[in-house]
Simulated scan of single mutants.
Amino acid sequence: MTDPRRTEQVHPDHADLDRLSPLDLVGVLAADQLAAVRAVQAAAPALARAVEAALPRLARGGRLVYAGAGTSGRLGVLDATELTPTFSWPPERAVPLIAGGEAAIRRAVEGAEDDEEAGARDVRGVGTGPDDVLIAVAASGTTPYALGAVRAARAAGALSIALANNPGTPLLRAADCAVALDTGPEVISGSTRLKAGTAQKIALNTLSSALMVRLGKVYGNLMVDLRATNAKLEGRAVRLVQHATGAPEAEAYAALAAAGGHVKTAVVMLRLGLDVGAAQARLEAAGGHARAALGEVESGEREVGE
């Protein structure tokens, strides 16, 4: 019986994969990953629609809730975890759910992905509500756990976004925003940790980063919501402040120290000649958007929520 899901089909070009030299084998595996990039590029309009739909909810204080099983679930955990150090996104507003629970991050929990009710139960268990955004990820597009998560999220009034590597699958049909990442058969047949997983990682990075940019976590292309918490980040923060303000290193360092290591506040302090309290107040009035706080929003531009 032929499985209609392209991710489950045997790749037609590499029947002798196990006979290749190490160099040729690596070349084949690496080259096939290029299809992941093409799949995400083709999905750009769908990703943009998901960003637009999610922004008002997140601007009102909603959370990003991720749901998936196996590789897809682990990629959701990774994306959720990285938002805090990169964008100072509150960790309580990035909620990763993985079939089988935290134990499944390090080892497979057999059968967990087949439990649709567990997906629904996990979504309900974290109190998912109307301002939240669920991102469900499944290469097959048929994973019961992810389907249960989407259905529970929609029942709670949350926005549901689905990423899957097979077009027209039940997960994509069930969600408010469907993102098809059509990567096709894998070089190692059925191993969706390969280019299917790569496409998911790229799409998740793209989606969450676009959201953070539009929510004011970035000024120009500088990640100004970074908060320096170690030596490496301190150096990065100083360089970011210098780039944004043209201030000498000593002045950038002093402003950062006064701002508690928060790049965005230090930038507003130096650019406008304000103390830390006034800079924080100006940012708060601008909804956290550095460009607006600096008076650089041009006619026709709009902030999230307007």
Rank of each mutant, 00 (worst) to 15 (best):
L172Y: 02
T169I: 01
A279R: 02
I135P: 00
A99H: 13
L64R: 03
V109Y: 11
A104F: 06
R302W: 11
L171P: 06
S21Y: 02
A108V: 09
A108R: 06
V179M: 02
V37W: 03
E82I: 04
A254C: 01
A138K: 00
L283C: 07
R93N: 11
L47D: 00
A247N: 09
A36R: 07
R60P: 01
T71F: 12
D3T: 10
A156T: 06
G260L: 11
V37D: 04
R236F: 12
L194T: 08
R74K: 15
Q9G: 03
A104E: 13
A67C: 08
R74M: 07
L256P: 14
A164P: 06
T265C: 06
A120K: 10
A59D: 12
L58R: 02
E110M: 10
T183W: 04
A112Q: 06
T206I: 04
A247I: 09
D275A: 13
G295N: 10
G141S: 04
A120V: 13
E306N: 07
Y219I: 10
D275P: 04
T206C: 12
A67G: 03
R271I: 11
F87Q: 04
R93V: 13
S21M: 02
E116S: 14
T198R: 01
G184E: 00
P91D: 09
D225P: 09
L83E: 05
D176A: 03
T245W: 04
G235F: 07
L55Q: 07
S299H: 12
V95W: 11
T81C: 09
N165Y: 02
E251Q: 14
V297L: 15
L78W: 03
Q33W: 01
A290F: 00
D13T: 09
D32K: 05
C177T: 00
S209Q: 06
A158S: 15
A158N: 07
L211H: 04
E234N: 14
V218M: 12
T265E: 08
G288H: 08
V268T: 06
P144Y: 10
A108H: 06
A174V: 05
L194E: 00
V10S: 09
V26R: 12
